[in-house]
Computed example of a mutant assay.
Amino acid sequence: MTDQLEPMPDDWQRALAIVAHPDDLEYGCAAAVATWTDGGREVSYLIATRGEAGIDSLEPGKAGPLREREERASAAVVGVTNVEFLDHADGVIEYGVALRRDLAAAIRRHRPELVLTLNYDDTWSGTYWNTPDHRAVGRAVMDAVGDAGNRWIFPDTDAAPWDGVRWIAVTGTDSPTHATDATDGLERGVRSLLEHRAYIEALTTEDPETYARNLLEGFAREQGKHFGNRPAVTFRLFPR
């Protein structure tokens, strides 16, 4: 990581965040989303699965609808009203043409200037192995942005080609280049994660609010060391 990160661009109006699971955006990025929507920007979410395999104690047929409800409530906390789910199977998403097509079609529908996704590297912090779903979706996002702008690739989608994406921003990466001040959005970021109560309660025996607050405030403080010591959410920014 560089000593001090650049601020994220702010001369945009529409963003589309594309991730694999409900809760992927709430583990850090939602605080930035709250800041952006406060500024009048439009952010939409596209979730590739319904997270149906994410709760060991709950069968997928019940977990999927529950996690979808939790994600919609979570998004509303940070000013996001447009949440779209694809129907890829949780845990076994495959990178390939079918996934690229679904994502390119969504980019064409939403016409974003900024596309967000989650760390798709093999590891987190060089230590913890990343999941196949995160790796597949993140890499497909990077390719689908180009696909969306090419009228000869996936010409049968409902929406016309869109070549207006100006940046792709990857959150959760070990090599960020930019950051957003999370001071004003951090509390709502915590409350957004807390909407995933069933998931958190299955994940840890710790009090959910204590868990969410300690985790997100700790992330923001640590990332802020490279952003003027302000609470921050960091991104690796790829201009186009």
Rank of each mutant, 00 (worst) to 15 (best):
L16S: 07
R108V: 06
Y27Q: 09
W36A: 09
P176D: 08
D11P: 00
D133P: 05
R188Y: 04
L103Q: 03
M8W: 11
V190Q: 04
K225F: 13
K225W: 13
W36V: 07
E195G: 03
T117H: 11
R139C: 03
P112E: 13
N150K: 06
Q223N: 15
T171I: 02
E217F: 12
E113A: 14
R240N: 07
V77M: 05
D147S: 12
G146L: 14
P60L: 14
S175C: 01
D3H: 08
D143K: 09
L5W: 03
L114Q: 14
A89W: 02
L186T: 11
S57Y: 09
A98N: 12
E206S: 09
R139E: 02
A182I: 09
E59P: 10
E6Y: 00
P9S: 03
L215E: 09
D143A: 14
P155Y: 02
R139N: 11
I153R: 15
R197T: 13
H88W: 14
G218T: 12
F154S: 07
R151K: 14
R50V: 01
I55E: 10
R230F: 03
Y95F: 12
R236Q: 06
G61H: 13
R108T: 07
R230G: 02
A169E: 08
Y128Q: 15
R109K: 15
G138V: 07
M8T: 13
V233C: 11
W129S: 13
T177H: 05
A169P: 02
D11N: 14
D122V: 15
D23W: 06
D156K: 08
D122Q: 15
A63R: 06
R14Q: 06
T180G: 02
P9G: 04
R111E: 15
V190K: 03
H196V: 04
N229Y: 11
D24F: 11
A20Q: 09
G149H: 00
R69A: 12
L103W: 05
G218W: 08
T183R: 15
E94N: 06
W152I: 09
T171V: 13
P132L: 14
P208Y: 12
E113H: 09
G64M: 11
N130G: 10
V83H: 03
P65F: 00
I200S: 01
S74T: 05
N130R: 10
V165H: 07
G146M: 10
V97W: 03
L114N: 04
E84C: 04
T123H: 14
Y120V: 08
G51I: 09
A63D: 08
G91L: 10
G149K: 06
D3P: 00
D121H: 14
R69G: 01
D23C: 01
G126D: 13
S44C: 12
E187W: 05
A105F: 05
G79V: 06
V145N: 06
A136I: 09
G228D: 11
